[in-house]
C-alpha cells in the first residue's frame, strides 16, 4: 500500500535525523533532549513524485500527504511548538475540505515514564491537539481522543531519537 511506502520513507528520514543527532551526541544528554528537533514530518517529506491523486480523497493517506498526521512533543511536555501548530493548521484545513470526516487523536508518550502517568500525559497531548483544532473552527464532535500512554511506540528503540518520535499525537481519519 502506498501509505505504507510513505511510512517507510518517513522512517528512513527519521533515521537520518537520528544520525544527525548522534553526530552532536557529545553534548549533554539533557540539552540534546530538549533541543532535538522533532523528526521530519510526512507533509514536508513527500516527494514531488507522490501526488494527491494517488490517494482516495479524504483518506488517511490523503491526510498524511497533504497535511501530516503526526505532531511531536518535548520530554514530559504537552505544549504545541510552531511546527506542531503548523501541522495542526493544515489538518484543520483538511478537515474543512472533508466535512464528513472526523479524527481520533491518539496521544502517546515515550517509555521513560511510569504507566499511569504516561496514560494521563497521552491524554493531555491528545487534548492539546484537539483544543488547537477546535480553536481553528473544527466542531468538537469531530474530534475524539484516546491515550495509549507508552503502550504503542512508533519506533522500537531505547534512545533519545526513538523517544522523541514516540512522544506524539497522531490524527487518525474516521
Amino acid at each position: 500500500m502506498l501509505s505504507n511506502a510513505l511510512r517507510m520513507k518517513f522512517i528512513v528520514l527519521a533515521a537520518a535525523s537520528t544520525l544527525a543527532l548522534a553526530a552532536c551526541s557529545d553534548t549533554d544528554d539533557k540539552a540534546a533532549m530538549t533541543t532535538t528537533p522533532p523528526p521530519a514530518q510526512s507533509s514536508t517529506t513527500t516527494g514531488p513524485s507522490v501526488t494527491q491523486a494517488e490517494y482516495a480523497p479524504g483518506s488517511q493517506g490523503d491526510l498524511e500527504a497533504n497535511a501530516g498526521s503526526r505532531i511531536y512533543f518535548g520530554y514530559d511536555e504537552y505544549n504545541l511548538d510552531d511546527r506542531a501548530q503548523a501541522t495542526l493548521s493544515k489538518q484543520a484545513q483538511w478537515l474543512k475540505r472533508y466535512p464528513n470526516k472526523s479524527f481520533t487523536i491518539e496521544g502517546h508518550a515515550d517509555e521513560r515514564g511510569t504507566r499511569e502517568y504516561n496514560l494521563a500525559l497521552g491524554a493531555r497531548r491528545a487534548e492539546a491537539a484537539k483544543r488547537y483544532l477546535a480553536g481553528l473552527g473544527i466542531e468538537e464532535g469531530r474530534l475524539n481522543t484516546i491515550s495509549y500512554g507508552k503502550e504503542r511506540p512508533e519506533i522500537a528503540g531505547s534512545n533519545e531519537s526513538a523517544w522523541a518520535q514516540n512522544r506524539r499525537a497522531v490524527s487518525v481519519v474516521q
Binding site: E116, A120, A123, R131, I146, S147
Partner: peptide, 26 residues
C-alpha cells in the same frame, strides 16, 4: 466520558479508587 484508569480496591473491597481523564485533565 473519558478514560478511566489506575484502579485499586479499598482495603474492605467495597470501593474502587481510580483516575479519570476528562478534557485532558486527570
Amino acid at each position: 466520558d473519558g478514560m478511566s484508569f489506575a484502579p485499586r480496591f479499598s482495603p474492605d473491597g467495597s470501593q474502587v479508587v481510580m483516575s479519570l481523564a476528562r478534557n485532558g485533565n486527570t
